[in-house]
């Protein structure tokens, strides 16, 4: 086979091997010749990020913060179900949460415009009216089902909710954000809403149902948004807020049940200390290979 094309392959003893597929078998070399340039283009662990223990620990705080928020919601549910929290105080909690959340949003977002305020107020009034109208339906929804099964379903739904929750952002976006939430975070939000409906349906009066539904929905839908805004505004504030929330939750749980307290405490320790350490440890085993055989990535966004 002729190989007289391009390159200095005419030197008599043994022309240099070239990494080409054309021109038939290269003279002096078998097809299974492995050159020293073999695997030259391979890159190992190119995109591996060196992680810092402290940074990972601080980042994991947002997970434990949300765990505490959910724990607080469950606490309120249990107190309400055991009638140690009446509907008036529940409504008071709702109102204070609404106002404080609103204020936090306004301060951190830095966009105090009257139209936006009006827009919010209108939406919230629609939301509350709808909920109030639907309360009687929720109240009788699961009358024929035993409380045990409801609790079991609720717990599993909450676990699903926590498992699929989007801890990096909030599913409910501030107005004007274009990106749609992922499917898993939508499932997560829906699981929490269903759990709230189930719990509300075990309550004695319509006002109870309304108050607890309003409370749960406020927390599940808007707490991630509020904490996200705080985190974006100032990380220090976020840390303070999270730690005080953790302390508050732990003390409440402690008064409720010792075992649950130990459980929550170990969960928080696991999330904040063990998991970051674990992540750093398993980084050593990371083995990533890249090379010319990889599918090229497009450097622009495809807008379908």
């Amino acid at each position: 086979m002729d190989l007289g094309l391009g390159g200095s392959n005419s030197s008599p003893p043994r022309p240099k091997w070239r990494k080409v597929a054309y021109g038939g078998m290269q003279p002096g070399y078998n097809d299974n010749h492995t050159d020293e340039t073999f695997l030259e283009g391979m890159v190992m662990n190119a995109s591996v990020v060196k992680r810092d223990m402290l940074k990972v620990m601080l980042d994991s705080v947002s997970i434990s913060e949300y765990l505490c928020i959910v724990a607080l919601v469950v606490l309120v549910w249990t107190y309400t179900l055991s009638s140690s929290l009446d509907e008036n105080s529940l409504l008071l909690i709702d109102l204070s949460l609404l106002v404080s959340g609103f204020l936090i949003l306004l301060f951190t977002q830095e966009m105090l415009s009257l139209t936006l305020l009006l827009h919010y107020a209108l939406n919230i009034s629609f939301f509350i009216t709808g909920l109030y109208v639907l309360a009687p339906i929720y109240q009788t929804l699961t009358r024929s089902i035993s409380s045990d099964s409801i609790w079991a379903v609720t717990v599993s739904l909450l676990i699903l909710h926590l498992f699929l929750h989007d801890y990096s952002e909030s599913t409910v976006k501030a107005p004007g954000v274009l990106k749609n939430p992922a499917l898993t975070s939508c499932i997560s939000v829906n699981a929490s809403v269903v759990a709230s409906v189930f719990i509300a349906s075990r309550l004695p009066s319509r006002l109870h149902v309304f108050a607890i539904m309003l409370f749960s929905l406020q927390v599940f839908l808007f707490a991630p948004l509020v904490t996200y805004c705080i985190k974006k505004y100032s990380f220090c504030l976020h840390l303070c807020f999270s730690i005080s929330l953790m302390v508050l939750t732990l003390s409440f749980v402690y008064t409720l049940h010792r075992f649950l307290f130990v459980l929550l405490l170990s969960l928080l320790v696991f999330v904040n200390l063990v998991c970051p350490y674990w992540l750093i440890r398993i980084q050593e085993y990371k083995f990533e290979i890249n090379g010319p055989w990889d599918e090229a990535k497009l450097c622009f966004d495809i807008t379908d």
Partner: peptide, 10 residues
Amino acid sequence: SHTSKENTVL
């Protein structure tokens, strides 16, 4: 191809 060989060996 040679790239394919590198890939297959790996």
